[in-house]
Every structure is written in structure tokens, then in C-alpha cells.
Design a protein around this nucleic acid. Sequence first.
RNA 1: GCUGGUGUAGCUCAGUGGCAGAGCAGUGGUAUCGUAAACCAUCGACGGUGUUUCGAUUACACCCACCAGCUCCA
Length: 592
Amino acid sequence: MSKVLEEKLEKMSPEEQKLWALRHTAEHVLHTALQNLYPKLKKAMGPATSEGFYHDFDLDEKITEADFPKIEKEMQRLIDLDLPLIQEFVDVKKARDIFKGNPYKFEWVDEIEKRGEKFSLFKIGDIDLDLCSGPHVESTGKVKAFKLLSVAGAYWHGDEKNKMLTRIYGTCFPSKDDLLKYLEHVKLAKSNDHRKLGQELDLFCFSDLVGKGLVMYTPKGTIIKNELQKALMNACKEFGAMEVNIPHMAKLELYETSGHAQKFKDELFVVKSHHKEEFVLKPVNCPHHTQIYASRPRSYKDLPIAYVESTQQHRDEKPGAIGGLNRTRSFEIDDGHTFCTKEQITEEVIKLIKTAEKFYKQLNMWGNHWVSLSFRDPKTPEKYIGDEKDWQTAQKMLLDVNKTLKLNGKIIEGEAALYGPKIDIMMKDSLNNDVQLGTFQIDFAMPKRFDLKYVDQKGKEQTPIMIHRAILGSYGRFIANLLEKTGGAFPTWLSPVQVKVLPISERQIEYATEETKKLKDVGIRVELDDRNETLSAKIRDAQNEKVPYMVILGDKEIEKDEVSIRNREGKNSTMKLSKFIDIIKNEIENYQ
RNA sequence: GCUGGUGUAGCUCAGUGGCAGAGCAGUGGUAUCGUAAACCAUCGACGGUGUUUCGAUUACACCCACCAGCUCCA
């Protein structure tokens, strides 16, 4: 068994290990069934995953979901035969003999030979023999509830230079009940897809005329974005950050100096001037911020200097990478850079992450996340800039921060930024994919490349360190995630419409207009539903819009000079309008 | 960019090699209504460009957009 797999299994509970073995067996059943149905197919590889399993194979014939019933039937046949899974060990020669004509398995054989491990094979009855170190359940009959989910392409070894194989995803559970529950859960999560909710709640849109991956926020979506921005900028100013503002383009030279141009040249938008000049739309803000820092001499007494702004960035992403609000070609982020001494780094990062924690907690998002310690991949040093020693120092600092703040971060090698390691706040989206929101990055390299300086106590010039940071990251991604978590029922302070006034009949419209104005005058976002509809219809619509409060006005309310309040949970109460204003104002202020 | 799929009205969905259908929304009316959909009428669409065909929304090709996955993500 490979070291990686061994470590992975060690971390699992006995139940998880059992499920893993079951899914792994289901995967063998899948590839055996495929081999039976498509004799020309070349098996490549297939593991169990946290959600199920998949198998990658090479086949000229096209396979679509329409073929699933046929494949599932063959799988069921193998399951019904209740074939035992038997482990065998062979030598190199035998292994090469068995997988003759299959370059993928040959590669595994070479790899295993190089590692000096034993050639372990698993046999399903007498039908299938595959290179595999297990573990498995004892027989195919143990696979009680499985389902094929989707078919997709996947590069061999995950490298786009390699051939694209066909991948079939499936899942498997100990019982039919568990499987159904899982499928139901997936369906529910998909119904909370931010793209669907954004359309339904009228928050943002796209246009073919404007272009792919270019989002536009509607008035309601803009309210959410602006409220987040206000709250965030206030939070940042609490620890002394100063707002700055930069243009959306710069000369290519700026990014050649920072190192971005070399690494991301295919993703830069180029803007041509009529004066023989060429600019690029800014893909990041750090280089601009270094130039604000560099605009005057700095003393150690000035440090740390923290710049922050909410601003758009533009990246010409590969078409296949674009989707919804999670990856657009123009997006706003809350970006900031702290210039400090080496000694100040840890304290500054801690301060920033604490700010983020507070911000996420306000929105009930702290706890849904996991923390990635995104370190560099020591195997591919060419992907990064800066000194080896600085990287080690920075990564050590992030480990300390992780420990101090009990972030429970996972080290992910290869996820670092070009110039330094990061601590990333990660969330799951409605499709269970990881998305990065907040990020905190230590950068020794860029200040050197821009030749940034400060004067220390002894009057000597020193190079500062840069901390790149975003608390919520991209507003689009953040709003998408918040939408998927809340189903669109935003807290009152973020709700585009906080109160909807519903007169019961035409008789109350005049009165309702006055009450609406009173609410508007105290800064509450309120709408009057004066359509010629029944109360039930108005409530239904307001409910679907996820409006936190409805103010219902009929003859009774007018007579008593009171309002009837219905919240979006369906609870009713009656009170004076002034009292309602106090309650809602209080709720909004306490949130922020 | 790659593999596979999808594209019919603002939204959700039918349907067809020969006049494209519904529900909701919108608009005009009637009812003046008490906590999740009143009633009647009415407007509105085959993503684009070519090809085959007497005739293409339907078949084919290309383009565009969207979806899932892979790759990428400063």
C-alpha cells in the first residue's frame, strides 16, 4: 500500500475505513463491468473518495449517461454472483505479463518497482485481476446500494499535457436508505445553487452582449455588496488600515517587476493606447500598493503600514474555469497589504485573522469553513519566486499562527501563491467543491523585487515584509456562498428589502403609503406592495423574496393605530409602528 | 483549453421535417379580500450563421452561451 493511502486510512475512524473499503470494492465492480461490456477498454485507475468512487479508463468509444443502465445492470449481475475478492502477490515479470498492452498499468508497475513495494493484486472471482493494495470488503455481494452519477473527462495523472481519459463517477452506501438520503441531500444542495437563487431573487445577471464571465449586480445585489463592503471597511479601520484607491490598469512593466507577468501572461487583458502605449488591466493590486508605499521614505516608526481597498480585478480566465459568481473575469475583492518588519508579521497576521473570524461569525459562516495552510510544493520550486530560506521562515510563522489561534489548518502543498505561503479560509459550495474566500499571505519576495525600503533605528535601510490579505476575498464568491448557506434569507442588515408593507385591500393604501414613508425616513429599506392582489398572494411573494419582516395593514390596524408584523419564519405579532422601528433598528445595529 | 451534455416566452417546462403549446410573471379589467397562489381577458419564444430539403425550431456543420467534470486559480 502506498504511504499516502496508508496515512489517509490511518486518519479515518473504523466506520470511515469500512465505507472506504466498500466503495473501493464498488469501484472494482464498476471497472470489471466496464471491462466485460467494452473489451477494448484500458483500465487506468480508480479510487474511493469521500463521496463515492470513480474509475478512469481509456476507450475510443463514447460513453454517456445513457449507457449507465446497461453498466449498472452488469454491475448488479456481478454483485448478485457474490464473488470473493482475493489478494495475490506476484513478481515484476508476472505483473508486466498480466497488464500487457495497458500503458497505464505499466506505469504503475514501474512506479511500484521503483518504490520497491510488493506487487499486490486483487481478484474478483476469476473474472478480473487488478493492481491494487486494498483494502476491500470480502465479496461483491456486500455492495448493497450503489449508483452511477456522472461521466466526465479527466487527464491521466491530472496533467493537461497527458491524454484525456473517460471518468465515471458513482457512489455507494451500506444501505439503500443511506443512498437515498445522500441523493436527496445532493438534490437539496443543488436547489440552493447561488446561480438559481441569484436569478430568482434578482441579485445579479449576465449578458451575452457584455461578455462571458462578466457579472452585473442589480440594485438588490448591489445593496448586499455595498453593505458587506461598509461593514468590512469599518472592521479593517478598527486595526488601523487606511483606504487607498488605484486605477484599473498599469504598464506591463509593473507586473514584470512583480513576477506576475511571467507566470500569468495568458490571463492578462491587454489595453492598447493610441499613443503607442500598452497597458494591462490589473489582475492584482499588490504592485500598485507597493508604489504607494514607495512614494515617500518610510521609517520603522511608520510600520506597520496597512493599505486596504475594495476594488475590481480582471483576469482572462480559461473559458472552462468560468462559472457563476465563483469565477468571473472581472471581480471585486477586499484587498489589502500590510508593510511591516519581520518581527511584526506574526502579530499582524493574527490581528487580521481575528478580524476575519469576527466578520465571518456575524454571518454564521465561521464553523462552516476549513483552513488551508497553502504551502509551496518543494518538488516544483520553479513555480515560485523568492529565497528558499524566506519561504521556510514564512511557512513556520503561519504554522505558529495556526497553533496560536487553534485554526486546525491542513497543510496543502502546492497551493501557495507565487510569492509566498498562505492561510486560506475555505468553504464548500452547493456542489461540494472547495472555494477559497479569505486569504492571508506572507511575502518576502515582492518588496525585494520592488526595492522597497524603510529606515531602521540605526539609520540603516531595510526591506519590509508584505502581508497580502483579503478578509472575505471576492465579493461574488462570498455572496454566492452566503446565498447557498442561507438560501437567500440574509440577516436583516444585509437584506435588500428589510420590510414589506402589505395593505389588505385598496382601502388601506393611503395609510400604508404613510407608514411606508415613516419606515423609509428612519433608513429602513422598505417596499410597499400596493398591487391589486389578495393578502395571501402578497405574503407568498414576500416570503419567496425572503423579506425578513412584513407589515400587514387592515382596517383593524388603522383603527387601533398599530401594525401587524409577520416575520419570515411565519410568526405574527401586533405593536405600535414606533416599537417595531426600535426593534428592527436595534437588530440591524447589533449585527454590525 | 480538454471530455461529455444542454439551448423553445422574463421564469419553469411540453412539442414537431409542414400554422409552436401550457403554467407562473407582465399588461387590461372584475372582486375589496385577514396571514403561502381570487377570477376573466390579453401580450410574448424555437441562441446565431450556414448546409441539405419543395419546406428546418426539428437533420448536419460551424460559432456563441450555459451545465458537470478535468486542468488552472496571483
